[in-house]
Simulated scan of single mutants.
Amino acid sequence: MPAARVQVLYNPVDMERCRPDPARRAALLRELGLDEHALVLGCFGRLHAGKGIYTLLDAANAAMAQEPRLHCLWLGDGIDTERLRKSIAASPFAARHHQLGWIADASPYYNALSLLAFPSIAPEAFGRTSVEAQACSVPVLVSAAGGLPETLQPGITGLLLPPGDTDAWRDGILALCDDARRQSMAAVARNFVVRYFSAIAIAAEFVRQLGDPWS
């Protein structure tokens, strides 16, 4: 089929389920044994090498050497779960990594985050956790791989980084550890999702496409 005849609509994000919740954030930080000043970097999804988890682990450890407030929260499961666990245990900042395993509904945990990483080194069709995190006013670090760049406004709601480049990911993490920069991105992230990925936005685009299907 000619590309001009193909229209893509994103699966909408539940903006009520994915929203900022300070009380939930405080409770989750307490569960993790962290204080309110901790900076929590999240990685949510399947745990295998193609997702860039080892690049992220190395980058996070390098950033932790410079930023004492930084912690990393890992949610998910996969073929490399045990290998990641051993790599974390052998790392210099093992106590600052929190690997919680598979959780059926990850949406509450976005509120524990200061920033979210989507570090895939393999092309992705999309990156839903990136969008859901921004709906919770969490800025993101995203690989320039496949459809992932469509999930953020680079330099505004997060940073777009080269896949597999540990130094670039370390620098990106440290850049968003800067409170002013991170907070300015957090302030606009949810509005970005409302505009492009909310149910209202997707429904309006669907109606528009029905009205002019070959536009």
Rank of each mutant, 00 (worst) to 15 (best):
D14G: 02
E31H: 13
Q183M: 13
R190V: 04
E67G: 02
A187G: 13
F206H: 13
F197I: 01
S130G: 15
D58E: 15
R195L: 11
C43D: 08
D14A: 04
D77I: 09
R195N: 14
L41V: 07
T129D: 00
I200H: 12
D171N: 14
W102Q: 15
I173F: 04
A65L: 06
I103V: 15
L73F: 09
R69S: 06
Q209Y: 10
G172L: 05
Q153V: 08
R25G: 08
R19I: 05
G78E: 13
G127Q: 02
G76I: 06
S198I: 04
K51R: 13
S143N: 01
V207Y: 14
W214P: 02
D165Y: 07
L47F: 07
P12E: 01
R181L: 09
L176G: 00
L113K: 06
A186G: 14
V207H: 10
T81V: 12
S215L: 14
F192I: 04
L148M: 07
H97V: 15
E31T: 13
A90N: 15
Q134V: 03
A133F: 00
E82S: 10
N11S: 11
A204V: 04
K86A: 13
I121E: 00
D80S: 13
I202Y: 02
H98C: 13
H98M: 15
R46Y: 12
P2V: 06
V6S: 10
P162R: 05
Y109C: 12
L39I: 15
R5G: 14
L9N: 06
A3L: 11
I200Y: 07
A189D: 07
D167Y: 07
L141N: 01
L152Q: 02
L141S: 00
H71A: 12
L32N: 07
R208D: 14
A145N: 05
A145Y: 00
F192G: 05
V188D: 11
D171S: 08
